[in-house]
Amino acid sequence: MANDGDDGQSQDYLFKIVLIGDSSVGKSNLLARFARNEFYPNSKSTIGVEFQTQKLVIDGKEIKAQIWDTAGQERFRAVTSAYYRGAVGALLVYDISRRQTFDSVGRWLNELHNHSDMNVVTILVGNKTDLKHAREVSTAEGQALAEAQGLFFMETSALDSSNVAAAFQTVVKEIYSILSRKVFQSLEQKKSELQSLSSGKAVVLQGEANQTSSGGRWCCSS
């Protein structure tokens, strides 16, 4: 976690969240839409790593999400470990109009597991839902993969803003929830495995509504 649990009640929260996925799936535009409500039709490739700190309010608490956006890793490998280090959340993005980016999800999960805590809260994001006629990956396929891997799942469009804020909020909310439970248990002088804290299934959200996730599992290897 970004902060020690024992100090959670008195400190501001800063969560590091990483955006991962193939080149040109729209990671930078997801970040631009979420942080600045902007969209760049002709985005340039990200050089290395870029940052954006965004404030959210979860359960009345102000939480800072430090969102790390990077080139699709192939182009800038020097920061691989550093990129993931300390991350507590991840958005794994693919492009629904390019199947190859969906087929790469497994490799990105391996990358994430190799370089970070296995307990990173991860959401699978199928971006570019505005390209309806060019869709190559169905919603059901995305949902099935997310369930198999124990991930949250959402389909988004950075172009028309569909579900963008919801995707980030889902991750941040889950991180905060886990942290709160950890703080509570620390106060209760109890220890439990984090994996057993969550319950329910991966949540699949679609359409325009900003539905709130009621819970779900995060990335695990079992």
Partner: peptide, 13 residues
């Protein structure tokens, strides 16, 4: 450390 590394990378570029 990762912050230092990221800035170092950009500085070398």
């Amino acid at each position: 450390a990762s912050h230092l590394l990221l800035i170092k990378d950009y500085v070398t570029l």
